[in-house]
Design a protein around this nucleic acid. Sequence first.
DNA 1: AGCGCCTGTTACACTTCGTTACAAATCTCT
DNA 2: AGAGATTTGTAACGAAGTGTAACAGGCGCT
Lengths: 240, 240
Amino acid sequence: MSELPHILVVDDHREIREAMTRYLKKNGMRATSARDAVDMDAKLANGRYDLIVLDVMMPGEDGLSVCRRLSASGSMPILMLTALGGETDRIVGLEIGADDYLSKPFNPRELVARIKSILRRSTKVEPFAGKLSGRRIAFADWILDTDSRVLSNAEGMQIDLTGSEFKLLTILLEHPRFVLSRDQLLDLSTGRAPSVFDRTIDNQISRLRRKIELDPSRPRIVTTVRGGGYCLAADVRELS
Amino acid sequence: MSELPHILVVDDHREIREAMTRYLKKNGMRATSARDAVDMDAKLANGRYDLIVLDVMMPGEDGLSVCRRLSASGSMPILMLTALGGETDRIVGLEIGADDYLSKPFNPRELVARIKSILRRSTKVEPFAGKLSGRRIAFADWILDTDSRVLSNAEGMQIDLTGSEFKLLTILLEHPRFVLSRDQLLDLSTGRAPSVFDRTIDNQISRLRRKIELDPSRPRIVTTVRGGGYCLAADVRELS
DNA sequence: AGCGCCTGTTACACTTCGTTACAAATCTCT
DNA sequence: AGAGATTTGTAACGAAGTGTAACAGGCGCT
């Protein structure tokens, strides 16, 4: 299991943003593009990003204004793209809170090096166990300790979950009785997009069931919705 | 950083370094200059600095070598000065741990903006030991005395941590329940960028676990997230 | 009933991680 | 300054975890 950093590339030139996202994807990152500030805001409202690459010159709301806004509202790292010679833009951007800048045209290798350097210094926006962090969670006959990743039951049985099993289970526990598709589960647990005939989640669910179901061949806790995905079919309660 | 940041400017051209230090002093900073690596080392041995501005092209030991050395020995922020078009120098510098670069000739205002941007970033990640000297930190069954670097528990057991173990632990303690990648931990604890198959952090974590975990082969305090890094899985509290 | 699709499972290859041992670097003491 | 002790980083090996491929069985539609 590996969580890839997710980069949002905001640039009004389609060729540029497509080339950038392609290159970032080739270098161990998820990349999503937005053509302007409005598109960016919509993307930010619907997803979680680790860093924004932001063009200064854009129609509508310009990059400096966006940078000011983002810096004021949180700790999202920002790498700004400026025109060659756009020195004032660079200075003002840095002064209002951008983490770095790069002048167009730029070497994509430098873009990746700069992004990695910024990410090295920033923390993720979410703890590993998400909203359940630090809690003990009761469901079915199990109690999950989210710190130790240990499942225990009334008979005193204790089961260690692997990282992947644990992540998958916490995602299901955060949405009791909701069907989550395989693509959703893959995205939420690993951040990667599915390949063509991806069976990763099925395999992990099988492994999880082997650990938590009374009879894994007739699952009662993690149920399958054919054509839909998987569902945590139990009440969920926090113990502490 | 309660008082004015102190910048060390390393450049072999006297006019340049004098102009820089003068300008920095006019902009709310203390500034000291050094003409080469030897002079810089002497200055570093006798004083404390918040950031180094480092020219790439210097007689004697060159800037890239100095950068590599400084990154390896601590978390001193470095802003590198490159010749116009010195792109390879920039990329390699960033890859070995420099925080930023600037091409000569540059606008002094941009220099100040960049220095401030770096300082803004670096003060954000100051570990307990730096900012909260004299504190005692409680986590799991341990109490850490940040002055003495001694861990103690309710049974009266006392454990001395080495410098590296202590630094690593305080970084984890600063971000309870967040996954910190190996690259992040390496950067935050030593300031250097990872080599290709770097296992330094793994080894240090193994050593730390041997000291603090009940059963180091089944760690409960410092947990591993496969493909992600390490996580301090406990509540953290300051005692004084 | 037949067929195609969907799902569960097993096995295996590969990746990642833990640990040990040793060399190199650093620290401490005389 | 030098010797010894301690700490830290690197290399190697083995264990654990993960994703892919293949096969079989079940389900739903015609």
